[in-house]
Nucleic acid binder design. Structure first.
Length: 871
DNA sequence: GCGGACTGCTTACCT
DNA sequence: ACAGGTAAGCAGTCCGCG
């Protein structure tokens, strides 16, 4: 497409000559007014919030036919409240309460106190608006009464829990009422499902059924738009400040899932047209920035889902302030709702993919650590193989088409991050929404502890359980009684077995299928069951801990985590692999099992995390104690069966050449004695262990190699060394029998020697020599020491390059005073060759150590330096 | 004044 | 703001060394 085919913004709605007031009035079409509730046959609950004007909770419903958002306002008269243990008469005497502006009325209620296992009479303090309960700096109801329960729950969440609504699920609107659409399971599926879970005890059955309703339900396609803006700025290395919003928005891309591909460009003096615009894109030139912004705002009022990468912090925030400060938009004319740390939309749902992909649990368990840096570039490259477009110098100097291309690519990456693998990300979000019972916007912005908190709160309300106050939980259950091995940690964790250093052939690795969730289920662990109030439970001891566990009642977290574990292991994991099922169904099942994995893997961790609302250290401590117990018993049993245990970590044990009978016997023993499922996870042709824990190399029968923990594989290791290391690994993959190691040794010698020679001759490009270390704090935050990567970062800053937490600092070791220098500021002759040689040696020694080869045997001398003569 | 032994900090990894 | 356990490399400190 040529430059000329660009056209001015269509539908320009504000005439250039109008006065400020006239323009403002003309802009009123941007004022968002939710349509009155209409009847709908099926629409998906995507979000909820509170409308201060109407004093009611509302729900955003996505209707997949029209692909629009509809608003449903609560018409059941639900009101905000909190709970008190004081009787109504007592509360009436508290004047500041009853005279409180937002006070509505008092109600007597009963609640189940699961901590003390009894029913309580309590008083519900009902208010007219959520801020009256809490949230005002002073004088909130929760601060007036001596002790308030359930006063920290956001109002719309409270509403969702009380009304038993399920975010993410379909509803119909009928005569103004919100009615769930019962999803229909196909007969085949429902039959197989009940067979698969037939052995479940009934106490789990009911909860499992409620979960399958959520998971088996279809997921709609979301009409969405990816938005990216570019802002001019005089300082090329600095991101413009979104609060000040001083610079003009010069370009924006609106890339819709519906085929819309628009690039909006601000016409400026002296800008070249450039080589050409991306194919099939509508390029629109705006003479005035305000028109460009108006076009973006129209899209924000049109699309039910808006995707950005860092829109919370930048794009939407910038647009908001730019519109308000520079163009005097009234708040109502801006379709964005700004919070301290997020930017939401008045009409649809804003998904900030930066926040989503930044989530550690998702990063590790859903995307298997495929990306590490949280930049659009890194995530895009890793997941969809698409990188940002690079350019030299300032964005201001780009020609129109270059700027457009750059901006367009970013939007493209954002969109494709939600479309790859059959819309995996959108589906993940929706399934998470259903599990956590949280609005979609919140799910994308919050961590796993919030998801689990929300799920737990919901189940409390469903059962009329009083949600315990954090301080009561801590006081009643106490802290921990074990000592961690690591300074600063709260309690003892897992066991790592000292490896039998050397090479072992035919190694089988057994592990417990989700050990911690299984323990939580089997041992009935939950905050209310550990150290329960019943004297007859006191003999039900946790091994090696002064704790007992309730025998009378099923703990709520045990029920929830146990059910999810079984559902994943016995149903979703299996059907996700079942080729006889239609592809779309299998795809859904895979998303479900992935999501369950994310939640389950974190379920133990949150119990020991202070930030978790139901934080209960003894529970976390009991989990690891039982884990250690099962683990050591299993190792003892294996050894008693005559099996050599060469290594083990937490829940996995490495057995040297066990017979099939031995493995069977161990697995059966575990099932019967421990009531835990032990299974073969993997088998190695051989495995090599250095003396170090959490370090090994395992070769599968087909020659592929597993490497764990070794320096050569770490991402901060210089590329040249990683490559040399991988070269050695390939050689080791070819080793079939002990005799083959001789050949491998010669090859390894070559690899190391080549490395050395190239270092010496300074033949490696500097980038290959760079250590890449992430800086986790602002540079000024390093008070106690100044690590090398921070030294390099300081040098970068001095040269005018901005360094932010999360940036990866690439630096080279040099001979000059500081010892390090950022790659981009270094020349090849400065490199400290002998330092690199030491590094080569230590990296290779890790593996050679395991193979029983001395480094000096390979090189003939102790140190590389002496091998080649003094450096 | 310098180097070894030590501790602590920081990062990246394993389960 | 899910947990604890392990390793590497370096920064910084203390102490001995007549």
């Amino acid at each position: 497409m040529s430059f000329k085919s660009g056209e001015p913004a269509s539908n320009r709605s504000v005439s250039p000559s109008a006065t400020v007031e006239e323009r403002s009035r003309e802009r009123d079409f941007l004022v968002f007014k939710p349509a009155e509730t209409v009847d709908l046959s099926e629409a998906f609950f995507v979000s909820a919030s509170y409308d201060g004007g109407r004093r009611a909770a509302f729900v955003k419903l996505y209707e997949p036919e029209s692909k629009k958002i509809y608003f449903w306002y609560d018409n059941t008269g639900h009101k905000p409240y909190c709970l008190s243990d004081l009787p109504v008469e007592e509360l009436r005497k508290i004047e500041p309460l009853v005279k409180h502006q937002g006070f509505d009325h008092l109600e007597e209620v009963t609640k189940v106190d699961s901590l003390r296992d009894k029913v309580l009479n309590m008083t519900k303090i009902v208010a007219t608006d959520p801020l009256a309960i809490g949230g005002r700096p002073a004088g909130s109801i929760r601060d007036i009464i001596p002790k308030a329960w359930e006063a920290d729950i956001r109002y719309y969440e409270c509403f969702v829990y009380d009304r038993g609504l399920f975010p993410g699920m379909p509803y119909r609107v009928e005569g103004g009422s919100l009615v769930p659409v019962k999803p229909k399971l196909s007969e085949g599926v429902s039959k197989r499902l009940s067979e698969a879970l037939a052995s479940e005890p009934e106490e789990f059955g009911e909860f499992i059924r409620s979960l399958t309703d959520l998971f088996e339900c279809r997921i709609p396609e979301f009409r969405r738009v990816a938005l990216d803006i570019e802002v001019a700025s005089d300082v090329p290395t600095r991101v413009p400040d979104p609060e000040g919003a001083e610079y003009p928005v010069v370009c924006a891309t609106l890339l819709g899932s519906d085929g819309v591909r628009r690039i909006l460009l601000l016409r400026r003096e002296g800008v070249d047209s450039g080589p050409g615009f991306p194919e099939g894109v509508k390029v629109e030139f705006c003479d005035r920035e305000v028109d460009l912004i108006t076009e973006i705002f129209k899209a924000l009022l049109d699309y039910p889902v808006v995707l950005t990468f860092n829109g919370d912090e930048f794009d939407l925030r910038y647009l908001y302030h730019r519109a308000e400060k520079r163009f005097k938009f009234a708040r109502e004319q801006i379709p964005i709702e700004l919070g301290k740390q997020f930017a939401l939309l008045k009409y649809g749902v804003h998904i900030d993919l930066y926040k989503f992909f930044f989530n550690r649990s998702l990063q590790i368990y859903a995307f298997s650590q495929r990306y590490r840096e949280n930049t659009l570039d890194a995530v895009g490259e890793a997941l969809i193989g698409k990188a940002k477009i690079e350019f030299e110098g300032s964005l201001n100097d780009l020609a129109y088409s270059e700027l457009a291309e750059y901006c367009y690519r970013d939007a493209e990456i954002a969109m494709e991050l939600t479309t790859f693998d059959n819309d995996l990300v959108m589906k993940l979000i929706l399934i998470l929404t259903r599990i956590s019972r949280m609005p979609m916007d919140d799910v994308c912005r919050q961590g796993v502890s919030s998801w689990i908190r929300s799920l737990m709160y919901y189940e409390h309300r469903l059962r009329n359980y009083l949600i315990p106050r954090s301080e009561d939980l801590l006081e009643l259950k106490g802290m921990t009684s074990t000592e961690a091995l690591i300074k600063g940690k709260k309690y003892k964790g897992a066991i790592v077995v000292e490896p039998r250093a050397g090479v072992h052939f035919n190694v089988s690795v057994l592990d417990f299928a989700s050990l911690y969730p299984s323990i939580i289920k089997m041992y009935n662990l939950s905050y209310e069951t550990v150290l329960c109030p019943h004297s007859d439970c006191r003999d039900n001891k946790v091994p090696d801990l002064p704790y007992w566990i309730c025998k009378r009642r099923r703990g709520l977290s045990s029920l929830i985590i146990g059910a999810m574990r079984d559902l994943r292991v016995d149903w979703y994991k299996r059907v996700a692999r079942d080729k006889s099922l239609p592809e779309p169904l299998r795809n859904l099942y895979n998303v479900v099992q992935l999501t369950l994995k994310v939640i389950l893997n974190a379920s133990y961790g949150v119990m020991g995390a202070e930030a978790f609302a139901l934080y209960c250290p003894p529970v976390a401590e009991a989990v690891t104690a039982i884990g250690r117990y099962a683990f050591t018993k299993t190792i003892e049993k294996a050894r008693s069966l005559g099996i050599e245990v060469v290594y083990g970590d937490t829940d996995s044990i490495f057995l040297e050449a066990p017979t099939a009978e031995q493995v069977d016997e161990l697995v059966n023993w575990s099932r019967e004695e421990l009531r835990m499922e032990l299974e073969i996870d993997k088998s190695y042709r051989y495995a090599a262990f250095p003396k170090l824990k959490k370090n090994y190399l395992g070769v599968y029968p087909d020659g592929t190699v597993d490497i764990k923990g070794m320096t050569g594989k770490k991402r901060n290791t210089p590329a040249f060394l990683q490559a040399a290391f991988m070269e050695m690994v390939r050689t080791l993959g070819e080793v079939q029998s002990p005799d083959d190691f001789e050949k491998a040794r010669a090859r390894i010698f070559d690899v190391v020697k080549t490395c050395y020679v190239k270092l010496k001759r300074r033949e490696y490009p500097l980038e290959d020599l760079a250590f890449n270390i992430m800086i986790s704090k602002p540079v000024e935050g390093y008070r106690k020491t100044t690590p090398q990567h921070v030294k390099a970062a300081l040098l970068l800053q001095k040269s005018g390059i901005e360094v932010k937490p999360g940036d990866v600092i690439s630096f080279v070791k040099v001979t000059s005073d500081l010892g390090v220098k950022p790659v981009r500021l270094t020349s090849s002759r400065e490199v400290d060759v002998s330092k690199y040689m030491e590094y080569v040696q230590s990296t290779f020694e890790q593996v050679l150590d395991a193979l029983g080869i001395d480094f000096k045997d390979i090189m003939g001398v102790t140190k590389l330096e002496s091998f080649f003569g003094a450096g």
